[in-house]
Amino acid sequence: MVSTLKVDSLMSRNTISVLPTTTVADAARIMLANRISGLPVLDEHGRLVGIVTEGDLLRRAELGTAGEHGGWLRAFLMPATAAAEYVATHSRHVSGVMSHHPVFVTPETELSEVAMLMLRKHFKRLPVLKDGALVGMISRSDFLRVLARKLIETAEPCSDAAIGDFIRTELRHAPWAPRSGIKIDVKNKVVNVEGTIFSDEERQAVLVIAENAPGVKTVQDHLTLVDPASGIAFPAA
């Protein structure tokens, strides 16, 4: 499963980086030419000092998106903040627009942890460090490549009995699944699902378990939805 894999198995090792002195124009051209959303920024000793992304370049004076930085009142009350925002929207060099102290992962970080970090913080790419040195990058597209490969992998031939056992085992381990009342019948790799569920979400989840069983050709839904409040039953359409 993907959740047990480590960053080392997925990361891109041919990393493109820039210097703090690289111009914003050059950084933008590099991102466009290589179809990437961000670049690690290394100092003259090869140490990671920041990251510059598409998001860092959204607010720019050249685009008319810099804004007014809060106007004169903010400049008067918080001059340092206003000055920093001016640099970020007008600087010609990466050092002025990059994000400092970037979040990073290591080759031994589990992919499940990286995925949650990307979702929680809205990261598209993360630098990978080993002993303080940049050794790669991992991006959302790396996850998509693994997903696409796994979705098209040819399942090994399975018997009807093995398919049924797989589905029943998955249902037993699913905390949301009804404890009883779900009947699984498999014939010629066609799964017939019968029984009672209490929400449409449960129905969809049961059917997903069935269709993910290795070797399944199709799934027939004969589940009956019972409204918990009224007790009214709604058979499958």
Rank of each mutant, 00 (worst) to 15 (best):
M1A: 11
S3G: 03
T4A: 06
T4N: 02
V7H: 09
V7P: 11
D8T: 10
S9M: 14
L10Y: 09
I16E: 06
T22V: 03
V24T: 01
D26P: 02
D26K: 12
N34Q: 06
I36M: 02
V41T: 02
D43N: 15
D43S: 14
H45V: 04
L48I: 07
V49S: 00
V52A: 00
G55M: 08
L58K: 01
R60V: 09
R60A: 07
G64C: 05
H69T: 09
G70A: 08
G71E: 11
W72Q: 14
A75K: 13
A75F: 09
M78A: 12
P79A: 11
A83G: 10
T89Q: 11
R92T: 14
M98N: 13
M98G: 03
H101M: 07
P102Y: 03
V103K: 06
P107H: 15
L111P: 09
E113P: 14
E113R: 14
V114P: 03
L119H: 11
R120H: 13
P127C: 05
K130D: 07
D131S: 15
G132S: 05
G132M: 12
A133H: 14
G136E: 01
M137I: 15
I138A: 10
I138C: 08
L144Y: 09
L144F: 13
A148H: 06
K150E: 13
K150R: 11
K150T: 13
L151F: 06
P157I: 10
S159D: 08
D160C: 05
A161V: 02
I163E: 08
D165H: 13
F166H: 12
I167W: 09
R168D: 14
E170F: 09
A177K: 08
S180N: 13
D185T: 14
N188V: 12
V191S: 01
V193Y: 03
G195H: 05
S199C: 03
E201V: 07
R203P: 01
I209M: 04
N212I: 05
N212K: 04
G215T: 07
V216Y: 00
V216S: 02
V219N: 05
V219P: 06
Q220D: 01
H222A: 06
L225Q: 01
P228Q: 01
A236M: 04
